[in-house]
Design a protein around this nucleic acid. Structure first.
Lengths: 235, 235
DNA sequence: CAGATTTTTATGTCTGCACATATTAACCTG
DNA sequence: CAGGTTAATATGTGCAGACATAAAAATCTG
């Protein structure tokens, strides 16, 4: 192999990837230890560590103290979905965003599937909103949302005809952990009418629950018209 | 505030998160620079850097040289999906995995939607497989797969009745980048029969293309029976 | 004053070193 | 030899200091 300079952790990362792709290091193999690589690449151990850690974060390598670093046997593809605010998703496509509040009331429980997804106790004091997101005036997604009024008391007084509830929440409960499920469902007559779909057509659906410090903040079900596809970025 | 010791980058990370949740630092705010935080927490700048970088990787902070570090205004939720091999997914649920090869032939092109997803030139020399994954003997997913024989020549000679094509590929083309789309579709009569669903029922569908160094390795379409849900881990 | 140039500055990264920690491997010990 | 204890070791993390780099801010210039 030609003499090559490794100047930074990225180039080391690339070289390690190259060796894995070239099957110089096969799945399951233990690769040389950090000091050996640092020696080979003529750099500090910390730099090798940085490179290997980034590969381990992506599931390409598996590292354990004392046991060493090995090429993952069955690399689980870690797809990262950037779930943004629908307004941004729509505007990113160069379309005009619109938002309609269809209904607003109080409820005392989540639908059972969302409650199961939440995994935390759900209070009985929920604000329930049903709204429609529009792209250039065409229905883009039907959203059903429950907001925990214990956590986000101010939501009660908000007028969600002006600002979408998601956007308001995101700016008032900044950091939150959330869980998603993705599934397919058949359009029932009510949903079909909102989305201008035919009853029974297959619709893509995202359910989400959002927590902060173990307490439910909000639960959402978004239903998309026929043909909608959710794409990942790159793994 | 009580005197508190910050010993490592994780505790600093937690403290930063706490301040964001408590709205001491609001979305859009520029937070103190690394040296200031290192001084406050009585640690090295590298340690603060580690903490802030991890939050920036998750989209909670936004960092730019010279401009500083700010709390993300509209944090895109970065959901990470661990797409594993279906056999592992099934066995993780304590079920017995089975695999049926339904058809195998040669084709010269991908379906248009998968070709668009691939984003790289697709050769005309493709091995096409149709197979069914079973959990405790019940259909779990219908899989349609195309393998680029230029990249994975040995696939031609394989007997995919024994080992599933995915599993074989994963161990023969170790590191690969891939793109996914998720969508809903209606069961056509053929699919319906394989999955024991009724024609027209909504089905969840995952399309994937896998590349290595800019060349297509494989394209897959997996279709799941009614009621299937894909869950994320924690964001 | 607009536009180009220089300075300043916050983050990005590397180095070399030290110690912590989780495991494995080797070693007792009954 | 089984089972528990100890030593060895690869990675995890911390520190201080230095230089690199991107980009904002200040300055110069026509």
């Amino acid at each position: 192999m030609s003499v090559q300079e490794f100047r930074n952790w990225r180039s080391i990362r690339e070289e390690v990837l190259r060796r894995i792709e070239a099957r110089e290091w096969e799945p399951g193999d233990v690769i040389p230890r950090e000091v050996a690589l640092a020696d080979e690449f003529n750099c500090a151990r910390a730099t090798v560590n940085r490179a290997l850690r980034s590969l381990s974060d992506e599931g390409i390598l598996e590292r354990r103290r004392k046991a060493g670093t090995r090429v993952a046997e069955l690399p689980t593809r870690r797809a990262t979905l950037d779930i943004s605010i629908l307004r941004l998703e729509i505007e990113a496509q160069g379309q005009h965003y619109g938002h309609q509040l269809l209904a607003q009331d109080h409820e005392t429980a989540l639908p059972p599937d969302l409650e199961a997804l939440a995994g935390v106790p759900v209070p009985h004091n929920l604000l329930h909103l049903r709204s429609l997101h529009l792209a250039d005036g065409v229905p883009y997604a039907l959203e059903e949302r429950w907001i925990n009024l214990e956590t986000a008391r101010e939501a009660e007084a908000m007028d969600f005809r002006e600002i979408s509830p998601n956007e308001w929440l995101v700016n008032h409960v900044p950091y939150t952990a959330c869980d998603f499920t993705f599934s397919a469902m058949a359009a029932d007559p009510v949903v079909a009418r909102s989305l201008k779909a035919r009853s029974g057509q297959p619709l893509f659906r995202i359910d989400r629950t959002t927590r902060q410090r173990g307490a439910l903040v909000t639960a959402v079900c978004q239903i998309f018209p026929p043909g909608y596809r959710l794409r990942t970025g790159v793994a």
